[in-house]
Design a binder for these strands. Sequence first.
DNA 1: TAGCACATGTAATAAGTTACATGATTTT
DNA 2: AAAATCATGTAACTTATTACATGTGCTA
Lengths: 182, 182
Amino acid sequence: MNEIRTSTVETLLGMLSLKPMSGYELRGLISESIGNFWSESFGQIYPALKRMVAEGLVEVEDAPSGGRERKVYSLTAAGRQRLEEWLGMPARDQVARNELLLKLFFGSGMKPEQVRALLVRKREELDADLKRYETIERELPRQHAGNPGLKFWLMTVRYGLAEARALQAWCDESLKSMEEER
Amino acid sequence: MNEIRTSTVETLLGMLSLKPMSGYELRGLISESIGNFWSESFGQIYPALKRMVAEGLVEVEDAPSGGRERKVYSLTAAGRQRLEEWLGMPARDQVARNELLLKLFFGSGMKPEQVRALLVRKREELDADLKRYETIERELPRQHAGNPGLKFWLMTVRYGLAEARALQAWCDESLKSMEEER
DNA sequence: TAGCACATGTAATAAGTTACATGATTTT
DNA sequence: AAAATCATGTAACTTATTACATGTGCTA
């Protein structure tokens, strides 16, 4: 079976559909915009861009900023087509690896205070996530008023909000079940 | 920096704390019990067990079943200690890679019907998850009455339930926002 | 002038899946 | 007799992060 699973190329195509960019800019924009649910490192980006040029999915242009080397990539028709094809295919879901649940599964081997510590920590992390997402939800419409992407960007933020709120409730419920035992 | 990130070893230690098992049994039990949030393949398990024996974390015993080769692994004191240390450390959360959100982020480049298809599909997957989790939640207490692990196993199931329900609501809300545009 | 942001790239390492290779026993 | 399950293991490949290597320009 020859299942191709790299969505690095498609991620870069998607980002370049927003605007032409350098590898460095791509990295920055990726972590700013989709960093909550996706990531790409330089070690992936630069080799991928090279391959994409070879395959005719993108074009490079030398655009030094001052004396600084800089290569700006933009989509070709083939790249745009490839992106559209990929968008039309169903999303694969990855094997979720959840270390918190893994540890909790072995909870009977832990001291109750350790279990509580895991849950409290998770609650706190979710709280931080929630605050971050709420800020984004509030500010995005101002920053991108009229942008056809706004609606979809908000969709992704609300996914995070829905998830974080539900998991907070789960944390509280689980902590309560730990209290009952004391 | 020398951050060790393999929790395969710890997963196997945890499973072996439930009962001594062969590599083959470990694989089976892992996918049955924690398969919804964790996975280990043979390609990981067998080499890991070898290393664990070398490090003195587990002991092997030849226990052929009939004429069939079979090696049963059990925890040593060192293995038990290592497991406890790991359980006491905070859970690291992984870089979530969510391809659905990645595609939705580029939603303005898709036909609305394609976006809807993604959401509908996700809704259906969540529905299947939900049914699976509900069955587990119902049957686990019967199958493992009195087991000190039960409480924690239910905790992990309820995590899945909470998440799936929240994401279903998010799907509905998102689909509604797509309708408004028609 | 030191430090940070900009900028590109490779090498080493880690982590994991899938396919291959082999063989016995049990079930249909 | 064939197919499924039990059983162990290795090899090839894929994916991804981190560290290294190098250099420019701007700002405090």
